[in-house]
Amino acid sequence: MDSNPPFLDQYGALLHNSSEFRESLLNHKGDSTVGECQLPLIDLMNLTSGDERERRVCVGEIAKAASEWGFFQVLNHGISHELLEDMRREQVKVFEMPFEKKLGCSLLNDSYRWGAPTATSLKEFSWSEAFHIPISKISEEGCCDGEFNSTREVMEKFAAAMSTLARSLAGVLVENLSQSKQFFEDNCNERTCFLRLNRYPSCSLSPDIFGLVPHTDSDFLTILCQDQVGGLQLMKDSKWVAVKPNPDALIVNIGDLFQAWSNNIYRSVEHKVMVNPKVERYSIAYFLCPSYDSMIGSCKETSLYKNFTFGQFRQQVQQDVKMFGIKVGLPRFLL
């Protein structure tokens, strides 16, 4: 069993004493999923082809997927295969460090996270580790020194490319609602957004152990670059479905803030990652976020939600996780 991070040393009692864990070992069923789904696949080349009809069709496809699925995949997204491979190589190099070094050093601005410190049961536990890095911190002194200088260089290029793509997609979704893009231009930039490097070690203990617990994203938009191991699942028509990896596509999903801002026209959908018993999984997520004092109001009259800032939303999420073990999210802010 993987000892980097030392999950069993830290959480062994929690896992083995959990009634959910014992039941899963007896039943060996895991979560009931409905096979694999192929997310809507959208060719972004049509946004810049110069053909206005093709562009309108593409905008409609993106908006429809954001409304019906909350998730979609994009091709011809403008991020080169070489840059994606470079980022993956640097990511693996960082995670291959000894656990004590990841935990104790200042690499990537002390952004290392692992396991689930607040978990009291199996359903609250995540078998994964991550570096959750503010984009603005990547270029700071001490973020990546010595053997990791190349990591900084690649991350800066990768974050810039993801930022361009995220702002372009957000612009399309705003355009579809006939709204001004000014809010996103003023409030979402490298000072407010995040990059998250994820690793999900293999785990043969139980098919019910989460790599990442069910959740929605607390941002406007997330862009995910994943390997071909699989494990991502999302809620569709009240059932969990597994997302089939596509080696040529990036995954995009709507976050809570976009659902509120669009007055529920776009959907922030619950999703999770399940562990693989034999192989580890890597992914990288870019989160398009506003500043903490940005007011998130509805773009439509007769809003379904109270006005709230991103900072207030984050604070409420943290309080709920601490008190209840789970994120409550948008229902807290319904009128």
Rank of each mutant, 00 (worst) to 15 (best):
M1W: 13
P6Q: 15
L14M: 13
L15F: 06
N17C: 10
R22P: 09
L25K: 14
H28P: 11
H28C: 14
K29V: 12
Q38N: 10
L39K: 02
P40G: 01
L41C: 01
L47P: 01
S49N: 07
R55Y: 00
G60T: 00
E61A: 12
K64E: 02
A65F: 00
A65M: 02
A66W: 03
E68W: 00
E68N: 09
W69F: 07
Q73P: 00
L84G: 03
L84D: 00
D86M: 09
R89G: 11
V92E: 10
G104T: 06
L107R: 07
G115V: 05
G115T: 02
E129N: 01
F131V: 08
I138V: 10
E141T: 12
E147V: 10
N149M: 15
N149L: 14
R152C: 10
A159N: 08
T164Y: 12
T164W: 11
L165E: 05
A166G: 05
A166T: 02
S178E: 14
F183L: 04
D186I: 10
R191M: 14
P201F: 05
S202G: 05
S204L: 03
S204H: 09
P207K: 11
F220Y: 07
I223T: 00
C225Y: 06
C225G: 04
G230V: 02
G230N: 03
Q233T: 10
P247Y: 04
P247S: 05
I251C: 00
F258E: 01
S262C: 09
N264T: 12
V273E: 07
V275C: 11
V275T: 13
P277N: 08
P277A: 06
P277D: 04
Y282H: 08
A285F: 02
L288E: 01
C289K: 01
Y292N: 15
Y292S: 15
N307M: 14
F313Q: 05
Q316Y: 12
F333P: 04
L334K: 15
